[in-house]
Design a protein around this nucleic acid. Structure first.
Length: 462
RNA sequence: GGCUGGGUGGCAGAAUGGCUAUGCACCGGAUUGCAAAUCCGUGUACCUCGGUUCGACUCCGGGCCCAGCCUCCA
């Protein structure tokens, strides 16, 4: 039985979907004005695994996963201006880049990736509903604000009281607002800013409304899971609840999930601190699967401390797993879930304990290595099981040799390596071990490790 | 100040009221022409102070420390 930690109730609860034939998941995706960093990689990978696992439980056609794209906001406008582009040129560029990054990381496509700019009618409709119900008002300056005090449950997600928020408010008081906590739903356009027509004049949506409008539009008023990074809990998600519940009068998401931050030297990785890495920078040095493995090596709610040492560690771990699979013919017809599968599922059922699930993969690899010696059939059976479990994490789906021998440009080519190996094996046949060892050393210096097996020599890159 | 999480062996990272996590690294052995891989094996822990208990790393309470949010942010 799957249990999920719900940020709303602050405890783990058995998950039961509103409709098991259509489990609905919405995740706040990216605001597209720059390349994705490792923090974004974490959201992508974590929710990809959640999506995979829900699909495993409820069936491929019974999960709807929506990950939105915010393609209009202040930062986008500012960045487009800096670069002399219109906002569409800018956002298209980074949406393409994001999709490349996601694909490299083995992230499955969500069922839909709705964009804010393509949902203006839904956004305006929701704001109108809020105005009609007097949850929102248009101020003197033309902006439309949400009147936070009107929504009784405000603060339930983040565990805050309105009074505490007011006391701690560091927001410069905006004269147009009735209450400093009110937030903007519709911003009237300044000259030269991108804008859309609305009942409140030309303008653009505020930051939070697009997610309320798109999730409702794609999944209905009331759905199962809403996720995103920790930092979105307040104010973004708190405001979404206020907007959606206010507008529809119905419950919104049942379960709220928030993934923890990526840190560097135990400090939050953030653009403002200048200590972030983009996904593509990391992929220049590491195989994308290594990054994926690393992300899944800690629980999604905890912090994830990034460092090269940790990625090296992940690479070694993945090498161990692929080595076990090496040379074994995967045969789906052999698949017979064993005790390892039950333990793997038990781990995943426990709020997606991926690091624990990974541990099971190693035990399977261990088992395979032992069986490999004289029970090929059993080894193949477990290897098939290993691969099928790992698939739920989006790992180990490549051919083992492909992973182990994957290299960077500028290194020795596979052909060159094979030639050296042939020379060395000739030397070995001639008992010229001095030459043989020289060739081994030469390859080793080039980052290639040789492994002499029975009758043949295999190799991998370090 | 308010609100969230968290403090486990050299590093990373889980579970659990009494018994082995797991990975990487390290050490010893097997194996190898030499290696690598693999197998076998050893070692290193549970922030602190109280309490509950026959027994707590695991439950409860106080303290200390760390990170995050309260302002754009995955």
């Amino acid at each position: 039985m799957l249990e999920i930690y719900n940020s709303l109730t602050r405890k783990s609860q058995p998950f039961s979907p509103l409709d098991a034939k259509n489990v609905r998941l919405y995740v706040c995706g990216m605001t597209v004005y720059d390349y994705c960093h490792i923090g974004h990689a974490r959201v992508l990978v974590v929710f990809d695994v959640i999506y995979r696992y829900l699909t495993h439980i409820y069936g491929a056609d019974h999960v709807t996963y929506i990950r939105n794209i915010t393609d209009i906001d202040d930062k986008i406008i500012a960045r487009a201006n800096e670069r002399g582009l219109n906002i569409t040129e800018l956002t298209e560029e980074f949406i393409t880049a994001m999709n490349e990054d996601a694909r490299a990381l083995g992230v499955l496509s969500p069922n839909q990736e709705p964009r804010a700019t393509a949902h203006m009618p839904q956004i305006i409709e929701m704001i109108q509903a809020l105005v009609n119900k007097e949850y929102a008002y248009q101020a003197e300056n033309g902006d439309v604000y949400y009147a936070v005090a009107k929504f009784e449950a405000y603060g339930q997600l983040s565990g805050r009281q309105l009074e505490d928020l007011r006391a701690g408010a560091r927001v410069a008081v905006d004269e147009a607002k009735r209450d400093p906590l009110d937030f903007v739903l519709w911003k009237s356009a300044k000259p030269d800013e991108p804008h859309w027509d609305s009942p409140w004049g030309k303008g653009r949506p505020g930051w939070h409304i697009e997610c309320s409008a798109m999730s409702t539009h794609c999944l209905g008023n009331h759905f199962d899971i809403h996720g995103g990074g920790m930092d979105l809990k307040f104010p973004h998600h708190e405001n979404e609840i206020a907007q959606s519940c206010g507008a529809t009068g119905e419950a919104f998401a049942n379960v709220w999930m928030h993934n923890g931050f990526v840190q560097i030297d135990n400090e939050k990785m953030a653009k403002s601190l200048g200590n972030f890495f983009t996904i593509r920078e990391v992929l220049e040095r590491y195989d994308p699967e290594v990054l994926r493995y690393f992300i899944l090596s800690s629980h999604y709610r905890g912090p994830l401390n990034y460092s090269n040492v940790h990625l090296d560690n992940s690479k070694n771990a993945l090498t161990t797993l692929y080595t076990a699979l090496r040379g074994i013919e995967i045969d789906e017809s052999l698949l017979a879930p064993s005790e390892y599968s039950s333990r793997f599922f038990a781990a995943m059922d426990n709020d997606f304990a991926t690091s624990e699930a990974q541990a099971i993969l190693f035990e399977l690899a261990h088992e395979i290595n032992k069986l490999k010696i004289d029970q090929a059939m059993m080894a193949a059976r477990y290897a098939t099981e290993l691969k099928s479990l790992a698939k739920l994490l989006g790992l180990l789906q490549r051919d083992a040799e492909d992973f182990l021998q994957a290299g960077q440009s500028g290194e020795l080519s596979a052909d060159e390596i094979e030639q050296k190996i042939a020379q060395r094996n000739q030397a070995r046949a001639d008992k010229d071990f001095a030459l043989s060892d020289r060739i081994r050393k030469e390859l080793q210096d080039a980052g290639v490790v040789l492994e002499d097996g029975a009758g043949s020599t295999s190799w991998r890159r370090e």
